[in-house]
Design a protein around this nucleic acid. Structure first.
Length: 111
DNA sequence: GTTTTGACGTAGC
DNA sequence: CGCTACGCCAAAA
């Protein structure tokens, strides 16, 4: 039992809360959980071991780019999954990224 | 145990 | 406007 497991789990939970057709970024989640963006990406790497499967494709970098596609089974899978969610992807970048951006500080805002 | 690296982000030059 | 540097923290070597 380690603290890192707890942080990973928190990342997983937040990612799972992302609605269909929405995306978010590592940095925002990191900031929301009080960690670093790198660790969030690291958590995503471990996400495939988590059940149910974490929608890692909905988590992108600050630029809205599919930076982590290379970590999927196939580099195309990440884009396809996003498109299946109704998210348009062009040149490894999400279209209307700001429009579909899902911010935990707003959506999960604690009054 | 130390060193390197990594699905990031911001600041500086 | 592109590259370097640094901070962040954890996993792998």
């Amino acid at each position: 039992m380690t603290k890192s497991n707890d942080f990973f789990d928190q990342v997983f939970q937040v990612v799972r809360l992302i609605p269909k057709g929405r995306v978010t970024s590592y940095g925002v989640i990191a900031k929301y959980l009080g960690g670093s963006a790198r660790v969030v990406g690291y958590a995503m790497n471990a996400s495939h071991t988590s059940k149910p499967k974490v929608h890692a494709q909905r988590v992108l970098n600050r630029n809205g780019q599919l930076t982590g596609k290379h970590h999927f089974e196939t580099p195309f899978l990440m884009q396809e999954l996003l498109e299946q969610d109704g998210v348009k992807v062009k040149d490894d970048q999400v279209i209307n990224f700001e429009k579909i951006f899902w911010d935990p500080f707003i959506e999960l805002k604690i009054d």
